[in-house]
Amino acid sequence: MIRILIAEPSYILRKGLIQLINELPDTSEIEVVGSHLGLIEVLNHFSPDLVILNTSIAVAIPMEEIKIHLPDTSKIIHLINTPLPPDSTSQQISIYDSKLVLQEKLSHYIKPEQVHDDEENSEELTSREKLILKHVALGQTNKEIASSLFISTHTVISHRKNITRKLDIKSVSGLTVYAILNGIIKMEDIS
């Protein structure tokens, strides 16, 4: 599921964008903000994969500040209130773009999720990830895990990201519950 934040002051445009996104073949979670007020707070807790940002909102907040509060992998599409040249990139959309152009540009970012039930692509944790999860569930910090497994903190973080993505569980206590339910650690291990 892709998380999209629409930052657009105009009611009609917000509605239109939501309609357009819902027509694309993917399940998306959409949040909207109507002004720059509260935008940073929403970015922090929603952590969108994609932000559709009207330039009129972008002028009120420096771009660097927006980027600080976004996950590294997030993309931004700038929505512009004037026409764009025909060869414009997919990072920009104009309110004058045709439906076809908009769909084409948006579909670069919003791709249908592939659901595989077969083993290879399953969301099962790898044995390495299970090991990391075990340490996380026992309450160790990234740094501690890194030094006890002789890997870099960076590697630990990227494993943790994958674990969270696969399981849809973010908090340490949630991961601990999962680990116990699946016999990765024992109830007695945590006190």
Binding site: H45, D168, K170, S173, G174, L181, N182
Partner: peptide, 23 residues
């Protein structure tokens, strides 16, 4: 005061997922 907000939401979603998918 903003700091521990996200945490509470995150955990309730974790709880939903655990009950729905893993229990």
């Amino acid at each position: 005061y903003l700091e521990n907000h996200t945490d509470l939401e995150e955990k309730i979603f974790d709880l939903q997922n655990i009950l729905l998918k893993y229990v």
